[in-house]
């Protein structure tokens, strides 16, 4: 098996250049590539475009990259859980492209699957449709949407093996599998890295061909945004 292992997060992200087009897995702060984000923060790069469903919070996740002014553009479905984001957006320092969540997921999936465009009903008749081709199929209108592909995809899995196979846990899966497939270079960080052969092939969510670099992450904080309990 081809060994995809790299030493650590620093090693994994060392060649990401300024201006790179990135994808980052996660929904809110659930399933985000914490270690890769921390390693990116140490790099002296800027003008990043980041595809991610959300943009983190003020002091965690992508919010940290925003605070260090490393991001030129966010492509997301729901943002604004943080004040610095809002400030940069309103002052024009940050560009934001807002996309319906299902369209975002499908554009990333299409990118990884080699489908340059597809038709979806989401956004028909709204400002999302402006400038896009609309076509009728079987009496209903659909919008044409294009694929998304990244220079680097940064994903986070629960377990992985040295061959790059990934297994996710709970709702931390979210956008990670599609982003793994849509990255020219996909960097996967895992909570537990095992030798190839130890994961059950029947249980793999992301096959190793989608992953170019894998490392064992450390010190996962897994911050909770809305801690809600029943009494």
């Amino acid at each position: 098996m081809i060994n995809k292992t790299v030493k650590d997060a620093r090693e994994a992200v060392k060649d990401i250049p300024s201006g790179a087009f990135l994808m980052m897995g996660g929904f809110g702060l659930c399933g985000i590539p914490e270690n890769s984000i921390a390693a990116l923060l140490e790099r002296d790069i800027k003008d990043l475009t980041i595809v991610s469903n959300n943009a983190g919070v003020d002091d965690f996740g992508i919010g940290l990259l925003l605070k260090k002014r490393m991001v030129k553009k966010m492509i997301s479905s729901y943002v604004g859980e943080n004040a610095e984001f809002e400030r940069q957006l309103l002052s024009g320092e940050l560009e934001v492209d807002l996309i319906p969540q299902g369209t975002l997921a499908e554009r990333v999936r299409a990118g990884g699957a080699g489908i340059p465009a597809f038709f979806t009903p989401a956004g028909v008749g709204t400002e999302v449709a402006e400038g896009k081709e609309t076509r009728e199929f079987d009496g209903k209108l659909y919008l044409m949407e294009r694929w998304l592909r990244a220079d680097f995809s940064l994903v986070k899995a629960w377990k992985g093996d040295t061959a790059g196979n990934l297994v996710f846990k709970g709702t931390a899966r979210n956008f990670n599998p599609m982003m793994a497939a849509a990255g020219k270079i996909t960097i996967a960080e895992v909570e537990e890295l095992v030798p190839a052969g130890e994961l059950d092939p029947n249980q793999i969510h992301t096959p190793g061909t989608y992953v170019q670099r894998i490392f064992q992450g450390e010190n996962y904080e897994k911050r909770i945004e809305q801690r809600t309990t029943r009494s």
Partner: peptide, 20 residues
Amino acid sequence: PFPTEEEIDPDLINAGKQTI
């Protein structure tokens, strides 16, 4: 239902980012 304190799992949230 929402979890008890003991059941909280950061890898398990709903679309409102609440633990579930």
